[in-house]
């Protein structure tokens, strides 16, 4: 049985049974299904990462079976336009804090999709952290979504805001 719901995905970081500090939790994960999320195309993973440990951890990369390339991206103003770019040195999740991956903000970028990613499909996503064990979330659901003013969003400027 595949896990269907993604209400809350507590991921055990320390399989070897280390101390309870150092737990990173991924919540409300989803992956974008759009006209771009076709074989060879791109998508992105969003959600909330919470660092319950007493030291900062850094999301340096990710992996999923449906993408040839996965990068940690931020949206930045470049030449007067919001564009996305890989974050140098990864994305820090401060100790005791949460960060949100969201359209128009930080996200896990999926490129070179190995297959069409259709609405309602579920994938697995692995987050690679420096300073903590990697975590893998199953049942990350593909949501139909546009918006976020992300550069690869095709077509004219939309009045989303």
């Amino acid at each position: 049985m595949r896990k269907t719901f993604l209400l809350f995905i507590p991921i055990a970081l320390f399989l070897s049974g280390c101390a309870s500090d150092g737990e990173v939790v991924a919540q409300d994960l989803w992956v974008k299904s759009s006209e771009m999320s076709i074989k060879g195309g791109m998508s992105a993973v969003y959600g909330t990462l919470t660092n319950n440990s007493s030291q900062d951890v850094v999301l340096v990369r990710g992996a999923t079976e449906i993408a040839g390339v996965v990068e940690v991206h931020e949206m930045a103003m470049i030449g007067g336009e919001m564009k996305m770019q890989e974050i140098d040195g990864g994305l820090t999740v401060p100790a005791g804090k949460s960060i949100v991956l969201e359209p128009g903000g930080n996200h896990l970028m999926l490129m070179m999709l190995t297959d069409d990613l259709e609405a309602g499909e579920e994938i697995s996503v692995t987050f690679d952290f420096a300073g903590a064990e990697d975590i893998t979330a199953n049942g990350v659901v593909a949501k139909p979504a546009e918006g976020g003013d992300e550069e690869y969003h095709s077509g004219e400027m939309e009045m989303d805001n």
């Binding site: 269907t4 993604l6 309602g120 499909e121 659901v141």
Partner: peptide, 9 residues
Amino acid sequence: LRWMRLLTD
């Protein structure tokens, strides 16, 4: 089924 997965959640 994929549609119902989205709607149920």
